[in-house]
């Protein structure tokens, strides 16, 4: 029963990682860049929910919607201001800029919200589900995280595979020039990708802070790095890869904490990543990289 509990917790944490990883992987697939500030968008989203719901007393759903809207605008603004001028720059210049944006967001948060941790009130009002005579306890947050994860994954898969805009996204990710010749606005598509990823980051932030209720300006960075790891793990650029990578990472982390060592859990996660990349450098579902010159 313990194992089942850990597994469910792992799937729940993994769903949150998967939601964040989707943002990384979509942006990588379309814009060919690693948006290191993605984790910090999660943090901003969480603060927005904290302020609107806990401080101002808005209904939870409204707070989440506001957070998604603010993160969407934030993500699109970051892309427009910081990344789009670098469209033809070297990957290293873009990477350094992204790290810069990440620090900028953390420091703005430090300035505005202060360094004191805020205690985030879970947005999930349900009682834990107690099964098997109390041997199996599933928290409300776990259930909501898993359901939300499933909904987002299904919706995103349908969007990318079944809609014209999704098709255009795949076209841009494969060949920007040819996509433009079809009349697809590449800048618009990149902007839309950032918008989707950032809205998902807001959702992930709320779930994360409901499960781990301490909110600081650095809240987003570790989950951000883990989700990035998950995206690489599954094959960066691949949407199903991000889902699988996120879930596996969450499960490995929780099981590692439970059965090996809670201090070493993060090290185990990264060790697994290194092993996977040694065996299959492009990640679980990654396609062979053929860089065009």
């Amino acid at each position: 029963m313990d194992f089942l509990t850990h597994l469910i917790n792992g799937i729940s944490l993994g769903s949150i990682y998967a939601i964040i990883a989707l943002g990384y992987t979509m942006v990588y697939g379309i814009a060919k860049m690693l948006n290191f500030a993605h984790g910090d968008v999660i943090m901003i989203g969480s603060y927005v929910v904290f302020i609107t719901v806990s401080t101002m007393g808005f209904p939870t759903i409204l707070g989440i919607v506001i957070a998604m809207a603010i993160c969407t605008v934030l993500g699109m603004t970051i892309e427009k201001v910081a990344y789009s001028p670098l469209r033809n720059a070297t990957p290293l210049a873009v990477l350094i800029t992204a790290i810069g944006v990440s620090y900028l967001l953390q420091n703005i948060a430090l300035l505005v919200f202060g360094a004191n941790p805020k205690s985030f009130k879970s947005v999930v009002p349900f009682e834990p589900l107690v099964l098997a005579d109390g041997q199996l306890v599933i928290t409300g947050v776990s259930i909501v995280a898993i359901i939300t994860g499933v909904i987002i994954m299904v919706a995103l898969t349908l969007f990318v595979n079944k809609t014209k805009a999704g098709c255009a996204m795949k076209a841009v990710s494969e060949d920007r020039g040819a996509a433009q010749l079809m009349g697809i606005n590449v800048n618009g598509t990149i902007s839309m990708t950032f918008a989707i990823g950032s809205a998902l980051a807001a959702i992930a932030g709320v779930l994360l802070c409901s499960a781990y209720p301490t909110l600081t300006p650095y809240t987003g960075s570790m989950p951000g790095i883990k989700a990035f790891t998950a995206a690489v793990f599954g094959g960066i650029g691949s949407i199903p890869g991000a889902m699988i990578g996120g879930l596996l990472l969450g499960i490995i982390e929780i099981l590692g904490k439970a059965y090996i060592s809670s201090q070493l859990a993060d090290a185990i996660v990264f060790a697994v990543l290194i092993i996977v990349l040694l065996v299959k450098p492009t990640g679980i579902l990654g396609k062979p990289i053929n860089e065009k010159v």
Partner: peptide, 22 residues
Amino acid sequence: AHKIVSMGMAHVPEGRRVFSQL
């Protein structure tokens, strides 16, 4: 480039450049 095609100009690029994943 993305505004040219709706004006009535199409381009079959060198090397085909079809979208292989579609």
